[in-house]
Computed example of a mutant assay.
Amino acid sequence: MPEPPLPHSALEPPYSVEPKRLLEHLTTAVVLLDGALNVRWMNPAAESLLATSRVRVMGQRLESLAGVDGCVEAVLLKARDELHPFTQREASLALPSGESATVDFTVTPMSADELLIEIEPRDRLLRISREEALIARQETIKVLTRGLAHEVKNPLGGIRGAAQLLERDLPDPQLAEFTRVIVEEADRLRDLVDRMLGPNSMSRHEPLNIHKVLERVRTLLEAEHPRTRYVRDYDPSLPELEGDEAQLIQAVLNVARNAVQAMEEHDIDIPCLTLRTRARRQFTLGAERHRLVCELGIIDNGPGIPETLRETLFYPMVSGRAEGSGLGLSIAQSILHQHQGLIECDSAPGCTEFRLLIPLESHH
Rank of each mutant, 00 (worst) to 15 (best):
G320C: 04
V318Y: 02
V255S: 00
R276P: 07
G328C: 02
S237F: 13
H266M: 06
R291W: 01
G286W: 15
S347N: 05
A262M: 09
L275N: 06
A287V: 09
G304M: 12
H225R: 08
G326Y: 08
A246M: 11
P226N: 08
G341W: 11
V255E: 01
M263R: 02
L356F: 08
Q250W: 10
A287H: 14
A251K: 05
S334F: 03
L220E: 03
E222C: 05
E295F: 03
I298T: 01
L329A: 04
I299L: 12
I331S: 04
I335H: 00
L327S: 03
R310D: 08
V255P: 05
L253H: 14
N258C: 07
I249V: 15
G326R: 06
P303W: 08
P306W: 01
F354P: 02
C351G: 02
V260L: 00
G286Y: 14
P349S: 12
R229S: 13
E344G: 02
H266V: 07
S347L: 12
A332M: 01
E323P: 07
P271F: 09
E295C: 07
L275A: 12
P349H: 09
G243K: 01
D233E: 06
T277P: 14
R257Y: 12
T284H: 09
R321W: 01
L309P: 07
Y234T: 01
A223R: 14
P316F: 03
H337M: 15
Q340F: 15
R232N: 00
T284M: 14
E295H: 11
V231G: 03
Q250F: 09
I305R: 07
I270E: 13
R281E: 12
G350Y: 14
L285F: 00
A262T: 11
R257I: 05
D244E: 01
E265A: 06
R281H: 13
T312W: 07
D346I: 01
G350W: 14
C345V: 15
R281N: 12
P306N: 02
I335F: 03
T284A: 14
C272L: 15
A251L: 09
L309H: 13
M263I: 00
